[in-house]
Simulated scan of single mutants.
Amino acid sequence: APLHTVEKHYNPIVRELIAMPKPVIAAVNGSAAGAGASFAYAADLRIAGTSAKFLMAFANVGLTADSGASYTLPRLIGHGRAMEMMLLAQPVGAEEALRVGMVNQVVPDAELLSTAHALAAKLAAGPTTAYAKIKEALAAAADGTLEDALEAERRTQADCGATEDHREAVDAFVNKRAPKFIGR
């Protein structure tokens, strides 16, 4: 039954987090273990409270990683560190997670949600089409060749260059004002 739960419930969440055209922010406090940690790894940005700990303890119960951790974690921290986390099942605290690139920012626990909300508001006010295209290009580059990455950049840059947001940004730059993005 646990494998059925992973395939039926957890894997669709991971797929959606990665494929979603909007930036996904994970705010992590306390322990993030197993699938909970995997969801955080699948986010685009991770903010950790000082109490956050990440744990991949599957080996302790005779299992391997699930919910996409074998895909996402090495892309964040490298193959060697991911292997170490999964084989040794030792928790990684917030400051170490920041040092190795597992999280983008560490804040006091009491400021975690307000920091995540402020970041979400900043992103929501930005060029959301460009953010979707950034995710698309990075995904193509992560799994492809240099030529795949160059083609994805060409295509996504052309898509963004045709948006109202790009025209607005150019006009704002020329007129020395802040742009007002509309997501088109």
Rank of each mutant, 00 (worst) to 15 (best):
A1Q: 10
L3E: 14
T5P: 00
K8R: 12
K8N: 10
H9D: 14
Y10T: 09
N11W: 07
P12I: 08
V14P: 05
R15S: 12
R15L: 08
E16N: 11
E16L: 09
P21E: 04
P21V: 01
K22E: 15
V24I: 10
I25T: 09
I25E: 12
A26M: 02
A26K: 02
A27W: 05
N29P: 01
G30K: 04
S31G: 14
G34W: 07
G34C: 05
G36K: 08
S38H: 11
F39Q: 05
A40R: 06
D44A: 08
D44G: 08
R46T: 12
S51I: 06
F54S: 07
M56N: 08
M56L: 15
A57G: 07
F58T: 01
A59N: 13
V61N: 12
V61H: 11
G62N: 04
G62R: 02
T64N: 14
T64R: 12
S67H: 04
S67F: 03
G68R: 14
S70H: 13
L73G: 04
P74D: 07
R75P: 02
I77C: 09
G78F: 03
A82D: 03
M83R: 09
M85F: 06
M86T: 15
L87E: 15
L87W: 10
L88P: 02
L88H: 13
L88M: 13
P91I: 03
P91F: 05
A94L: 07
E96K: 14
A97E: 07
A97D: 07
V100P: 06
V100C: 11
G101S: 03
N104R: 10
N104W: 08
V106Y: 10
A110V: 09
L112T: 04
T115I: 08
A118K: 09
A118N: 09
A120L: 09
A120M: 09
A121R: 14
L123H: 04
A124C: 04
T128N: 00
T129W: 00
T129L: 00
A130Q: 00
Y131C: 09
Y131F: 15
A132G: 11
A132E: 01
K133P: 00
K135G: 10
K135R: 10
E136Q: 14
E136S: 11
L138K: 12
A140I: 03
A141E: 05
A142M: 11
G144L: 02
L146T: 14
L146K: 10
D148Q: 05
A149W: 03
R155L: 14
A158I: 00
D159K: 05
D159V: 06
D159R: 07
D159A: 15
C160V: 11
C160I: 15
G161R: 00
G161C: 01
A162K: 01
T163E: 00
D165P: 01
H166L: 08
D171T: 15
A172C: 08
A172V: 12
N175M: 13
K176Q: 13
K176L: 13
R177M: 11
R177E: 06
P179I: 07
K180R: 15
F181N: 05
R184L: 04
R184W: 01
R184V: 01
